[in-house]
Amino acid sequence: MISVENLTKYYGVKKAVNNISFNVKKGEILGFLGPNAAGKTTTMRVITCYLSASSGTVRVAGYNVFENPLEVKRLIGYMPENPPLYTDMTVLSYLEFVGSIKGLSGRKLDESTKRVMNLTAIEHVKHRVTGKLSRGYRQRVGLAQALIHDPEILILDEPTAGLDPKQIIETRELIKSLAGQHTIVISTHILPEVSMTCQRVLIINEGEIAAEDSIENLTKRIRGSEIILVEIEGPKNEIGEKLKRIDGVSEVKFQCTKDNSLQVFHIETKPDFNVRKELVKIVVSSEWGLNEMRTVSMSLEDIFLKLTTKEEEV
């Protein structure tokens, strides 16, 4: 549905997006993950025809965004990071305005306005001026605005930013319910959001794609190495030293001391090494006490940090 090929975008001399390519299939929910200023919004803006690419091509449903912007814009519902509200209009008149410039009129406009107000639960504030709404409601009006012409493609730039936990869950449910009939691209830097709503993740950092895969694969890919949590009773520094020397351990991180003598460590192993046996041997031979040992699975958060932060120690 959306195909991005070798997209590059410069802001002056600064490269915001560097030669990225990806595809989004029809009916898929793609999560765009990255730290701030990674190039997420820029990429979205190019897809929605707001910005022009410095080089590369973007096609939406076969239409080139540069050559057929009107066709592309008709297919896309876009919700920018800050909801684009006219603060002097009421919710209802705002939605009617957006609907009409998106090509709806007459009865269809009325029906669509009602439908999106129901979907985003803003019916009861429809006569209020958008400028006086709270952040959460503005966000919902922004979402309603993107949905009004029932677009095939939805591009949502941080749709849950500024919402309270209940609203976040509702919004995620709403996005999930839209999957299938709509192709959705969501950008966020909130990781659980991606694992909860998206089928595929694209991690983008400093304008480049750091990883692109389904969530399970991404987790698996890094699972080769694992993190083991151990609680050992004994002297902190000595334990650290000895653990580091175990064959197959790549990193030992001290976490905290519990009850004065219990030392908690995170041990990261090299791929396909089992260090547990060796670890127990050392504990026994040094006459420490082993209180706990368990595998900590790598969360999406760890994967994200691993991919987006440079390891400078190595």
């Binding site: 929605t48 707001y50 909801p83 684009p84 603060t87």
Partner: peptide
Amino acid sequence: KTGTLELLMTSPIT
């Protein structure tokens, strides 16, 4: 200033 330019520019009007 308010960002509504983004709405106009991404709507199917020239």
